[in-house]
């Protein structure tokens, strides 16, 4: 066998050889760079959270949590905003859950690649991209005005339900699709119908992903401001029913902070919001871990 000639160097102009940096050196540089970017991001995050908690935690006491805001929120607590947040979020999640999870199962298990499914998938993906302010506009014109629900917990909750629907659909569909196909084959091969197979073999493995999606969307509902202020209103009173207007904590924070009513109470509200989000995340993660432990 003839020895093969080495390929000509790309850069060989009059004996000039480009100085090649050793891959190991590049590796070190890149690693250092990536590490520093990541640490910077973490630092920014920590600075935001620590700042809010540092300013907000001293404000929080029992009265702050249980009293109704007085003088536009300058005094008193934020109990009605807490109630508003919980109510609006609950309405949103309870309405969006069946529709979102049902749609996900339809898309993942029953689609046959025909026009109807293409339309459903396209719409679901498009819904995901619509900005919350557009949901707010729609909620205002449809629920508040057209259906005459007024600024209310119900209008806000329904609007948020539509807003979080794509999140639930997408995460649930992902979870259902990631169930190994063998589970379906086993279900069918043991004489199960499609419905029995979905319920008995597919759904249990998808539950943790679905729950994660639902909890994510709870977080989104709690944090949303633009869509809520246009549909649930910003009334300071304690919401008496689903048809009464309400102010959520995010809206309360926004109003307090931008209109300069009370910085202290704004910080306190923000701190509670962050603690709540933190708590939701912890619940989500433990839920996931528990399902993982159970499934294996």
């Amino acid at each position: 066998m003839k020895p093969t000639k080495p390929p000509p160097r790309r850069f060989n102009f009059r004996g000039f050889k480009p100085r090649e940096i050793k891959p190991q050196t590049v590796e070190k540089i890149v690693k250092g760079f990536v590490w520093s970017v990541a640490l910077m991001v973490i630092a920014v995050l920590i600075s935001i959270v620590v700042f809010i908690l540092y300013k907000g935690l001293p404000v929080i006491n029992w009265g702050f949590l249980t009293e109704i805001p007085r003088k536009m929120g300058r005094e008193g607590g934020i109990s009605s905003a807490i109630a508003g947040t919980l109510l609006v979020t609950a309405v949103a999640v309870f309405i969006a859950m069946p529709f979102g999870i049902g749609t996900a199962f339809y898309l993942a298990e029953y689609t046959r690649g025909n026009t109807v499914t293409r339309v459903i998938r396209f719409s679901a993906e498009s819904l995901a991209g619509i900005p919350s302010i557009v949901y707010g506009l729609f909620g205002f014109i449809f629920f508040v005005m057209y259906l005459n629900l007024g600024w209310s917990v119900l209008s806000g909750g329904l609007t948020l339900a539509i807003m979080i629907l794509p999140t639930i659909i997408r995460t649930s569909e992902e979870a259902i699709r990631s169930v190994p196909n063998t589970y379906r084959e086993v279900g069918f091969s043991l004489g199960g119908t499609k419905w029995q197979t979905i319920r008995g073999a597919v759904a249990p493995s998808a539950v943790r992903g679905i729950a994660n999606g639902v909890i994510l969307s709870v977080g989104r509902s709690v944090a949303e401001t633009a869509a809520v202020v246009l549909t649930a209103g910003s009334a300071l009173r304690m919401p008496a029913s689903l048809s009464s207007p309400a102010r959520t904590m995010a809206v309360h924070f926004y109003i307090l902070a931008t209109e300069g009513i009370s910085m202290e109470n704004a910080y306190g509200t923000a701190a509670i919001l962050i603690i709540l989000i933190f708590f939701i995340n912890i619940v989500a993660n433990t839920l996931i871990n528990r399902f993982v432990a159970k499934g294996r």
């Binding site: 063998t182 589970y183 084959e185 086993v186 279900g187 091969s189 043991l190 004489g191 199960g192 119908t193 029995q196 008995g200 073999a201 249990p204 493995s205 499934g295 294996r296």
Partner: peptide, 25 residues
């Protein structure tokens, strides 16, 4: 009935795996 080329237990208990089929019937 069929047994596949790789073990395909469902992610549940041993008993539930065996009882899975009869429960559908």
């Amino acid at each position: 009935g069929i047994v596949f080329d790789v073990p395909t237990p469902l992610p549940m208990s041993i008993f539930d795996n065996v009882a899975y089929g009869p429960r559908l019937n």
